[in-house]
Amino acid sequence: VNWYYKAAVQGYSWGEYNLGLQFKNGRGVPQDLKKAVLWYEKSAKQGNLWALNNLGVCYLNGEGTRRNYQKAFELFWKAAEGNYSYGQYNVGRCYENGWGVEQNIPKAVEWYRKAADQGHQDAKKNLEWLQ
C-alpha cells in the first residue's frame, strides 16, 4: 500500500488504480469505498481502462458513491471503447438489463461477443444464455 500511495501521489495512474483497489477490498488498509472511488476517479481521468471499469461498478452498485446507472454505463462504455473485455462485458450487462440505457438484447449480445472473443468467461456464459 505504501508503494501504491507513493506512486499515486505522483500522479501515476496504475498507482492510483491499485490504491483504489486496496481501499475497495480492505487490503492493507481499512476498507473505505469512498476513498476507493476517489482513487479510481483520479486514475480514470488519465484513461486507465481498469479504473474506468471499476469506477463504473461502484456507480452501478452504489459503492462509495450514489448509485447512478447512466454514469456507470458511460464509464463502462469508455473502457469498452478501449477494447477492455471487462468494459465490453459490462456494457453488455447494461444493455441486457436496461441499466443506464434502453434495454436492447441484440446490442447486449454484440458486446458480450466482443468480450467473449477476448476470452471473458462470464461473457461466454451470458452469450449461451441469450442465444
Score class of each variant (00 low, 15 high):
108 A>R: 03
52 L>F: 02
42 K>Q: 12
36 A>M: 02
113 R>V: 14
55 L>D: 00
52 L>G: 04
131 Q>L: 14
6 K>Q: 14
52 L>Q: 08
11 G>T: 10
43 S>H: 04
63 E>K: 00
23 F>S: 04
22 Q>G: 05
74 E>P: 09
66 R>A: 15
123 A>C: 08
82 G>P: 05
118 Q>V: 06
127 L>I: 13
90 N>Y: 00
7 A>H: 10
34 K>G: 06
131 Q>A: 13
61 N>L: 13
63 E>P: 01
115 A>G: 02
130 L>T: 11
8 A>K: 07
45 K>N: 15
75 L>V: 02
93 R>A: 08
121 Q>Y: 15
129 W>L: 13
110 E>W: 04
56 G>E: 00
126 N>M: 11
62 G>Y: 10
1 V>P: 05
26 G>S: 04
129 W>P: 06
114 K>W: 03
7 A>E: 13
86 Y>H: 07
87 G>R: 04
3 W>I: 13
105 I>V: 13
78 K>F: 09
31 Q>A: 08
131 Q>V: 15
106 P>H: 09
25 N>V: 08
124 K>W: 14
15 G>T: 00
65 T>K: 07
12 Y>A: 14
84 Y>Q: 04
51 A>H: 01
91 V>H: 00
63 E>I: 05
122 D>P: 01
102 E>I: 14
105 I>S: 10
18 N>G: 06
118 Q>W: 07
101 V>Q: 07
4 Y>L: 00
91 V>R: 02
9 V>E: 15
3 W>K: 15
